[in-house]
C-alpha cells in the first residue's frame, strides 16, 4: 500500500496540490473558482472565511466526497481526479476526516467507532464480518489512550460529551494511519474548553506524528494561534495565503467583508499584545 502510493514521490514534491480547481453547483455562481495551492508534508493549515465561502466544498473536493467541476488535485504523487472507484477507496484510507457533528455511530462503543477507521483497508467480507486483527485492536487502544479516552473505551458514543465525541472522531481518523487529516469545522459545536483540547490534540497530531492537517475554522483567533499557514477564502476564491503573522487587519477585512467588524472586537487581545 505504502509502496504503491509512494513510488514516484520525491522529498521536495508537495503532499497535496490543487491546480485550477473549480466547482459549480447547478450553474449558479461558482462555489469554488480557480483554487490553486500546494501543501507540504507536516503543515498545519487553517482555512478561514465567512459562512458559505466554500470552505467545506474545498475540503470535500480534496477527498472527492464532492466532485470538482474542473481542475487537478494530486495527493502524494497520485492524480486524485482521475482515480477509479476502487483506487479512490484506497487513496481515501490515507486521508482522515473529522466533522463538526462528529458523525459517529451513536449506538456503538468508542472502540467500535475507532476501528471503523480500518474498514477501508479490509476486504469487503472481512469488513462486513468486523474482523479486526489483534494489532489493529492494540493500535486502537493506544490511540484511545493517547487522546485520554481510556475510561470510555466500551461506552456507547451517545453517552459521551461533545468534546469526547470529537476525540473519538480524531481517533477514528488516526487509526487510518493517514498522511493528511481534513477537519471540517471541528470545534464549531464545542464549548471553549473542549475546543482548546481538540485543537491541542490536532496540533500534537501535526507536530509529533508529522501528519498534515487542514482545518476549516470559523474563529480567526484560533487559526492565528495554531496554524503554520492560513488560507482565507471569500466567495469561492482564495484571497489570502500566508503565515499567521502576515494576516493583517486589512487582510481579515478582505476575507470577511462586512462581517469583519465583529471579528476585530474578538481579536482585540491579539492586536493589544
Amino acid at each position: 500500500m505504502k509502496l504503491e502510493l509512494g513510488v514516484n514521490r520525491e522529498f521536495s514534491e508537495p503532499l497535496l496540490e490543487l491546480k485550477h480547481v473549480t466547482k459549480y453547483y447547478h450553474g449558479a455562481a461558482p462555489a469554488l473558482e480557480d483554487i490553486n495551492f500546494s501543501v507540504a508534508e507536516g503543515e498545519f493549515i487553517s482555512v478561514i472565511g465567512p459562512s458559505g465561502a466554500g470552505k467545506s466544498t474545498l475540503l470535500r473536493c480534496i477527498n472527492r466526497m464532492i466532485e470538482a467541476t474542473s481542475g487537478e488535485i494530486s495527493f502524494d504523487g497520485v492524480l486524485i481526479s482521475k482515480l477509479k472507484k476502487r483506487d479512490l477507496r484506497k487513496l481515501r484510507t490515507r486521508i482522515g476526516m473529522i466533522f463538526q457533528h462528529y458523525n459517529l455511530v451513536d449506538k456503538l462503543s468508542v472502540i467500535e467507532n475507532v476501528l471503523h477507521g480500518r474498514l477501508g483497508y479490509k476486504s469487503t467480507l472481512a469488513g462486513v464480518m468486523g474482523r479486526y486483527s489483534p494489532e489493529e485492536k492494540l493500535q486502537a487502544m493506544r490511540i484511545i489512550d493517547l487522546l485520554g479516552l481510556h475510561d470510555q473505551v466500551y461506552k456507547r458514543c451517545d453517552q459521551l460529551s461533545g468534546g469526547q465525541k470529537q476525540r473519538v472522531g480524531i481517533a477514528r481518523a488516526l487509526i487510518q494511519d493517514p498522511k493528511l487529516i481534513l477537519c471540517d469545522e471541528p470545534i464549531a459545536s464545542l464549548d471553549p474548553n473542549s475546543a482548546k483540547i481538540i485543537m491541542d490534540h490536532l496540533r500534537d497530531v501535526s507536530a509529533q506524528m508529522g501528519i498534515t492537517v487542514i482545518v476549516n475554522l470559523h474563529q480567526v483567533s484560533v487559526a492565528l494561534k495554531y496554524s503554520d499557514r492560513i488560507i482565507g477564502v471569500n466567495q469561492g476564491k482564495i484571497v489570502f495565503d500566508g503565515s499567521p503573522s502576515a494576516l493583517t487587519a486589512e487582510k481579515i477585512a478582505e476575507i470577511y467583508g462586512s462581517e469583519s467588524n465583529d471579528l476585530m472586537v474578538e481579536l482585540g487581545e491579539r492586536y493589544a499584545i
Partner: peptide, 25 residues
C-alpha cells in the same frame, strides 16, 4: 446520512457500512 459520508470518506465500501454501521444502529 453524514455518518455514512464519514465512513465513505475513510474508504469503507457500501456493504461494510451496511453491516458495521447501519444494521448495528
Amino acid at each position: 446520512r453524514s455518518v455514512i459520508e464519514a465512513l465513505m470518506a475513510s474508504g469503507a465500501n457500501w456493504w461494510q457500512i451496511i453491516f458495521q454501521a447501519v444494521i448495528p444502529s
